[in-house]
Write a protein that binds this DNA or RNA. Structure first.
Lengths: 325, 325
DNA sequence: TTGAAAGCGCTAACAA
DNA sequence: TTGTTAGCGCTTTCAA
């Protein structure tokens, strides 16, 4: 048959409403054109732009993105993976709560990339937390603060560990003192309870694990009569939706949300094209680890340190407590 | 074979890592255990809780939810549908921008539920906008306002039409005057531009199409030196994430977001179980139309009307003072 | 270049 | 009850 008539047939078929059945195609080939992203909590604004970036690049490549919300539960995450792995060609684990080994078993079955986490043998894409933190500490230092309190997120969070460590290092280099309270749940509610704890041991500058926590913290502090940034300067992390309309607007280390999602999916796609059918266990495989730049967005929640700082309750001096790892 | 050994075999198989291949099962049966939800904009916080509700009930029923973001584009929506329809058992169209007829052709292929939209022949679930609006108008009336300005969203939005109509009716019944400006994009940016227009023709009370618009409006108004709620009271719609930490905290008509998603998916599931293989075109089919109750959340953006209201600059738009960020 | 056949891993309808 | 067989709609390999 010549190419011309072939094209004609194709055209007529399309007109008649014929579509090739993706399921039937997928059965012999394994090509489902499906990618999955597992998120800890769809409700967390951290994921909004990230999902957009991921969906966007997946769609452009002819893939469909399957989003699974696991509600912060390791068990749900495992189930979602089990359910989804056999139908997708690859998966991105965004902020997984699972152990490294669990992630490896998944990666053995399908190309996998982890987001905001670092694993030696799995492709990963993350924000450059260390540099971001460094910028935040410099900013606070330049404003005259001499001591910084880190309001920690979940112990299980990889990012939390990295951020605290980076803060300590940066403080050390710049001659500032670092203190840590927590852990707190990375939510507004968590921030509210952090406010109580912080008020008991005042500080002129705090960096919170993330924006949600920072926003809750600000609300809690304000309801205790503490002014921001006059009494305390607050820095968040991620620059999520809402960071620009809370009061005061939040100074934060902006993660390249959209890009994070896009790069994660792109990494998966490269992998799919590059090493078809070859299990990722093969050493020397195309193992990318992308570190995307963060940027400090200075808004209204940070200001000069007031040495004669007076907290409403007379601010009991802060015993330097809990500087544990 | 007796049941005992059968069970034993099953168990051993599982231990050996055998899983039934969902693709292979789906080919002859059509049962993919996949449901799709098409959202206009994953980035819009309106969808956060909604997605959670949807994903949650889908998962509990043994289904996997496929989320497609169509970025407010009708074209993208059509493509997403084309791509997704053949692999899923049903689809929920959340705030679709497509025409009724386009939706009908989709519904002919797979069970379909529309969200926040009403169609005579398609199952739908929506917020009871009319009653919600009524409550908002009563609230404003009780505060002494005599005239309400509606800041409209997109003309293409079904909800926008309903809300404006309900506002007019409620105002009429309560003897208030109703006015409308817009349409504006249902985003913070849209609210910012609405602020300029509103400042040119002051009003003591406004109800915005949605929270995003209301938040942008507040920010715009405040940057013009207008105080909220002293100079203007503002009511939003939806009670999205962030409505409780903008300044002032937003009074809003809360949509039952989580429930909306849950009910939409549940409707789909009922449909799948109830009328297997029967095309939905069959008249008299199980056509549910759920209207979920909204509730007025009174916060700080509404207050008593000040009859001798004096806007700065005599109500003419102030020079734009530049919005940082 | 074109056509025929085998089979992907399951389910369901049929015989035995 | 148990075992067998014929597809689901495609891709791919192998003959012609």
């Amino acid at each position: 048959m010549n190419a011309e008539t072939a094209e004609h047939i194709r055209q007529v078929a399309t007109e008649m409403g014929y579509r090739t059945n993706p399921l039937a195609r997928a059965l012999p080939t394994g090509k489902t054109s499906l990618l999955a992203i597992i998120v800890a909590d769809v409700t967390n604004p951290f994921f909004f732009e990230l999902l957009r970036g991921a969906d966007d690049t997946a769609t452009k490549a002819g893939y469909t993105l399957l989003v699974a919300d696991v509600q912060e539960s390791v068990e749900a995450e495992r189930q979602a993976l089990d359910r989804v792995l056999p139908m997708v060609e690859g998966v991105v684990l965004a902020t997984s709560r699972m152990s490294d080994s669990s992630i490896r078993v998944a990666a053995k079955q399908r190309p996998t990339v982890v987001l905001n986490r670092s694993m030696s043998d799995i492709a990963s894409v993350a924000t450059d937390n260390a540099r971001g933190m460094r910028r935040a500490v410099e900013h606070l230092g330049a404003l005259g603060h001499t001591s910084i309190t880190y309001v920690a997120g979940p112990d299980a969070s990889w990012a939390n560990g990295i951020r605290w460590q980076a803060l300590r290092e940066a403080c050390h280099e710049l001659g500032l003192r670092a203190r840590r309270i927590g852990p707190f749940s990375p939510t507004q509610a968590g921030g509210l309870s952090a406010a109580g704890e912080l008020a008991a041991t005042p500080s002129t500058a705090v960096i919170a694990y993330n924006d949600l926590l920072a926003i809750g913290l600000m609300r809690g502090l304000q309801s205790l009569g503490i002014r921001i940034p006059d009494d305390v300067s607050i820095v968040g992390f991620d620059n999520i939706f809402g960071a620009d309309f809370c009061t005061p607007q939040l100074t934060t280390v902006a993660a390249p949300l959209r890009q994070l999602g896009a790069v994660a999916v792109q990494t998966l796609l490269d992998d799919l094209r590059g090493t078809p059918r070859v299990p990722r266990t093969s050493p020397g495989g195309p193992l990318k680890t992308a570190l995307l730049p963060a940027r400090l967005v200075i808004r209204a929640s940070t200001g000069p340190s007031h040495p004669t700082n007076d907290w409403p309750n007379g601010g009991r001096p802060a015993a330097d407590e809990g500087d544990e790892d």
